[in-house]
Simulated scan of single mutants.
Amino acid sequence: MAIQVTTSALRDVKIIEPKVFGDTRGYFYESFNEREFAEQVGVDVRFVQDNHSRSAKGVLRGLHYQIEHAQGKLVRVMEGEVFDVAVDIRKSSPDFGKWTGLHLSAENRRQVWVPPGFAHGFVVLSEAAQFLYKTTDYWYPEHERSIVWNDPEIGIDWSIDFEPLLAAKDAAGKRLSQADHFA
């Protein structure tokens, strides 16, 4: 096995840790293997788009989702460290409105599988962070939605002692009770 998969606090969000082969020259690991992903995570997905962002310390992106063309995301950090969050916004789920979060960094090489039906976001804790994610559907700006990062109905503990830097669309995000949900 080249990966170890564990379940997060939300049963459908999976934490993926690759097996790293390292020596004095450096290291090597498979960042994605379709067959093993399907076997270990238990979902057979097709990724159609790769996204890469770089953000400065204190930037908070999210909580994003697409109400149509819902995207599953496989996320990881190539530089720096972030606190990554997923919120279940499927009305039929026993975990509706609950969140899970964990630290992703270049050092720990963890990845997170965020399935369709979840809002997703992260805050940068290091001086900068490069964030990469694969998606199971394309980006459609007309279907993109945002839930406000500090919604008291969700109660995410971002564990930050600063006011995050937000894009205008994220600052204008809706509360969970006002947002579009999945069935």
Rank of each mutant, 00 (worst) to 15 (best):
D88E: 12
P141A: 14
H120T: 04
K73S: 11
W113D: 13
P164A: 08
V77D: 00
V124F: 00
G101T: 09
V75T: 07
Y27D: 03
F182C: 02
F37T: 04
F28T: 03
A86W: 01
V123H: 02
V85Q: 01
E79T: 15
K134C: 02
R109I: 00
A172L: 12
F131N: 03
S93F: 11
V148Y: 14
S55L: 07
R109G: 03
F47W: 10
P116D: 13
A183Q: 08
F96C: 12
A172F: 05
W139C: 12
N33I: 15
V112C: 05
Y133V: 02
A168F: 07
D180E: 15
I15P: 06
A128W: 05
K174G: 00
I154S: 11
D161E: 13
G121V: 05
L165A: 10
F122N: 02
F118T: 04
S53A: 12
S126F: 03
F162R: 14
I16G: 06
A129Q: 08
F21V: 08
G62E: 01
Q66P: 05
V148E: 07
F118Y: 15
F131V: 15
F122L: 04
H103Q: 13
F21R: 05
H69A: 01
D88A: 09
R35L: 13
I160Q: 14
D88P: 14
V123L: 07
S105A: 13
G26C: 11
G97H: 10
S55W: 04
A129W: 05
A167P: 01
A86N: 05
N33F: 10
H181C: 10
H64L: 03
R11K: 13
V87P: 04
A171M: 02
R145L: 04
E34H: 12
I160E: 10
